[in-house]
């Protein structure tokens, strides 16, 4: 897959939030999203339909220490 991640982030940040890149480092960080995207891509297929809606607070209760 070939894409300009910097441009993608720039477009999204400006279009949806009205924020423009404040400096060159910000664009470098945006470009670094390629590894995050790869990580997310590797997780595809694991989200079960029944997981939604999911309450994290309920999970904390369900898994809590029995003898605190």
């Amino acid at each position: 897959m070939s894409m300009d991640i910097k441009a993608l982030v720039r477009e999204q940040a400006e279009a949806w939030s009205g924020v423009i890149p404040p400096n060159a480092v910000s664009e470098e960080l945006a470009a670094g999203f390629s590894s995050l995207m790869a990580g997310l891509s590797a997780l595809r297929g694991q989200l079960a339909f029944e997981d939604e809606p999911s309450s994290f607070e309920a999970a904390l209760q369900a898994t809590k220490e029995p003898n605190p």
């Binding site: 982030v9 939030s17 997981d51 999911s54």
Partner: peptide
């Protein structure tokens, strides 16, 4: 902060939805 605005909402929601399971 700027770069984080480029993370789509559906990815954020996925991260939250999977946290409990």
């Amino acid at each position: 902060l700027y770069a984080s605005m480029g993370i789509p909402a559906v990815v954020y929601a996925e991260a939250l939805a999977r946290r409990g399971p």
